[in-house]
C-alpha cells in the first residue's frame, strides 16, 4: 500500500506541471509616493542593476502564479521570499500570502523593516522567490539583488560587559618578615635571659633544705618528671605527635605510681612529724 502510494507520488512528480509567474513586477516608491523605479522581473536572469532602497522607501513586488501553458492562477502551498547575504551567510525568509487566484503582492517598507530581513553587510541581499506545491515541481526564481540601508547595530545586552575576560589577577603577598638586626637580637636575648640570673640569685638565698630528695622513694618521681621534660624537648626536636602521645601515656602510668609512692611517703612524714 505504502509502496503503491510512493509510486503514485513518483508518477505525479514525473507528470507534475511546472509553475511559472505571470507579469512579475517590482516597484520602488519613495515615502512621498513618487515612483522611483518600476520594472518587470525577468525570470531568466536577475536584474542586472540592484534594486536600491533608501530610508523610508517602499518596495512592492507583484506577480501571479500560474501553471505553465495555462492562464489559470494557482495557489501554491508555500510561497516565500528569501533574502540571502552571501558575505555574512545570513538569510531571512518572508512568507507571502497568495490569493486563490494565484495573485500575490509583497510590500517591503523600509520605514518599518520586517524582522526577517537579515542584518546588513556591504554585500547586497540576493532576493529569491521560493514556491512549493505538492502538485507541481518546486520553483526557485532569483528575482534581483537588493541594497537596503544599513541596519542599526545590534543592541548591547545590559550584562554584555560581564562576558569578557577579566584582567589577570595578580596576588599580592605581605612582604617577608625579617629578623631584626643582630645587635638588637643579642640585647634582647640577654634581657630575656636575665631573669634566670634573678631566679638563681634568689634561690641561692632561699633554697629550702630537701633532705629526702635522693631517698629511694622520692627520686623515681623526680626522675619521671624530668623524663617528661626530656620527652617534650625530644618531641620539639624530632618526634611526631602520635609517638609523643604513646610514650607520654606509658611514662604517665609510671609517673602516677612513682608520684603516689613519693607523695604518700612525704605525707606520712609530715603527719608523723606533727
Amino acid at each position: 500500500m505504502l509502496s503503491l502510494h510512493i509510486v503514485a507520488l513518483l508518477i505525479a512528480g514525473a507528470q507534475a506541471a511546472v509553475l511559472t509567474l505571470q507579469s512579475p513586477r517590482f516597484t520602488v516608491t519613495s515615502s512621498t509616493g513618487a515612483q522611483l523605479r518600476s520594472e518587470p522581473i525577468s525570470l531568466a536572469r536577475p536584474a542586472s542593476i540592484p534594486v536600491t532602497l533608501e530610508k523610508d522607501d517602499v518596495l512592492k513586488v507583484t506577480f501571479q502564479v500560474i501553471e505553465k501553458g495555462a492562464s489559470k492562477g494557482v495557489q501554491p502551498h508555500q510561497t516565500f521570499l528569501r533574502f540571502y547575504d552571501k558575505k555574512s551567510g545570513e538569510e531571512g525568509i518572508q512568507p507571502i500570502r497568495v490569493t486563490n487566484g494565484g495573485k500575490a503582492k509583497f510590500e517591503l517598507n523600509m520605514a518599518k523593516p520586517p524582522l526577517s530581513l537579515p542584518p546588513t553587510s556591504d554585500a547586497p541581499l540576493q532576493v529569491t522567490l521560493l514556491i512549493g506545491s505538492p502538485l507541481h515541481s518546486p520553483l526557485s526564481v532569483a528575482l534581483f539583488d537588493l541594497v537596503v540601508p544599513a541596519s542599526q547595530p545590534a543592541p548591547v545586552h545590559p550584562d554584555e560587559a560581564s562576558f569578557h575576560p577579566l584582567p589577570e589577577i595578580h596576588h599580592t603577598f605581605r612582604p617577608e618578615q625579617k629578623l631584626p638586626p643582630k645587635p638588637i637580637s643579642a640585647i634582647f636575648s640577654v634581657l630575656v635571659l636575665s631573669p634566670w640570673v634573678v631566679l638563681l640569685g634568689l634561690w641561692a638565698q632561699t633554697a629550702p633544705r630537701v633532705p629526702h630528695l635522693l631517698s629511694p622513694s622520692i627520686l623515681p618521681f623526680i626522675g619521671t618528671l624530668g623524663a617528661f621534660q626530656g620527652l617534650l624537648v625530644w618531641y620539639w626536636a624530632d618526634l611526631k605527635l602520635g609517638q609523643v602521645l604513646t610514650y607520654g601515656a606509658v611514662l604517665g602510668l609510671v609517673t602516677i605510681f612513682t608520684g603516689k609512692q613519693a607523695l604518700s611517703k612525704i605525707g606520712d612524714q609530715r603527719v608523723g612529724r606533727k
Binding site: 631573669p195 634568689l202 629550702p208
Partner: peptide, 8 residues
C-alpha cells in the same frame, strides 16, 4: 622559693 620563681 616559690615567690622567687613567680618573680622570675
Amino acid at each position: 622559693f616559690i615567690d622567687a620563681f613567680l618573680v622570675f
